[in-house]
Design a protein around this nucleic acid. Structure first.
Length: 270
DNA sequence: CTTTAAACCTGGTCGC
DNA sequence: TGCGACCAGGTTTAAA
């Protein structure tokens, strides 16, 4: 369940241990994640990690001769461990940098490890991504402009990575609750004022989760191996049948785009 | 073009 | 205790 905050937290967590370090070994224990892990990752040995950045939910590692692209899928996590740390059955890849190892664990194997020698943002998976929600370029005005004449329900709109990246199922429900907007509202029907509220809500929800250290992964473990688990106090998500924390109305669960959607029919309007 | 749904995978939970 | 059914999550791909 890593959403943007978890990926950002992971990026910040592993960076200090890896930047400027030289890769001494790459080991693949399970070569098939969402896609097969390309053989070229073995050419990483001897390369130095220049930087680690995030784009949407992708982690990008600049390794001099190319870029490692890592996606955590729905159950992936990265940690720094000692080389002799016992390996679990879902630890699929490890990259050794001297006395430390970066290990990818991903029980459901929806994640990905890819390699490109081109600028990573031109990679087919990244080339058509929308705006970063925490960028200044994403605000009420841009959201208003973007949603004009769009019939898609607003919840599906904000979850569409071609429009805005990083807003997954959990934070979509949370943001719409905070903004007081019914998730079924047609995007194009939102007023400028409501777009403003929504953009602010998305930023605020994501920022809160980042500062909490990542929240949406039930078994989230900090990249240092400590129990970084933190459950946000959700206002709507996963609260079907429970009273709204604002008005007491029972939170409803509906399905939109095959995903559970939670909202308060009293606080959130069309 | 847009919209919808299936697929990928595993572990946890529920009802019987 | 076992077993089947179903759900969660993000994203791509195929189909309508």
């Amino acid at each position: 369940m890593p959403e943007l905050p978890e990926v950002e937290t992971t990026c910040r967590g592993i960076s200090p241990h890896l930047i400027g370090q030289t890769i001494t070994a790459v080991r693949i224990f399970h070569p098939r994640l969402r896609w097969p892990i390309p053989d070229e990752v073995h050419t990483l040995v001897g390369r130095t990690i220049r930087s680690i950045t995030r784009r949407a939910k992708y982690l990008l590692m600049d390794c001099e001769t190319g870029h490692l692209i890592v996606h955590l899928g729905m159950s992936g996590s990265l940690r720094i461990v000692a080389p002799d740390a016992p390996r679990g059955k879902h630890d699929h890849v490890e990259i050794q940098v001297g006395a430390q190892v970066l290990r990818l664990r991903d029980p459901r194997r929806f994640g990905a490890v890819l390699w490109t020698e081109q600028p990573p943002h031109t990679h087919p998976l990244l080339a058509h991504l929308g705006v970063e929600p925490l960028d200044a370029a994403f605000d009420g005005a841009s959201l208003y402009a973007q949603t004009r004449k769009v019939n898609t329900p607003i919840k599906l709109f904000v979850m569409d990575a071609k429009r805005v990246v990083g807003v997954g199922n959990i934070y979509a429900s949370e943001s719409l609750f905070l903004a007081g907007i019914d998730p079924r509202t047609r995007a194009g029907k939102l007023s400028a004022a409501r777009c403003e509220r929504l953009a602010k809500a998305i930023k605020s929800v994501l920022r809160a989760a980042i500062s909490a250290g990542g929240s949406s992964l039930r078994d989230f473990v900090g990249s240092d191996g400590a129990s970084g688990y933190f459950q946000l106090n959700y206002r709507a998500y996963d609260r079907a049948g429970a009273p709204c924390r604002t008005c007491g109305q029972l939170i409803r669960r509906i399905v939109m785009g095959q995903r559970s959607t939670f909202f308060c029919s009293k606080c959130q309007t069309r």
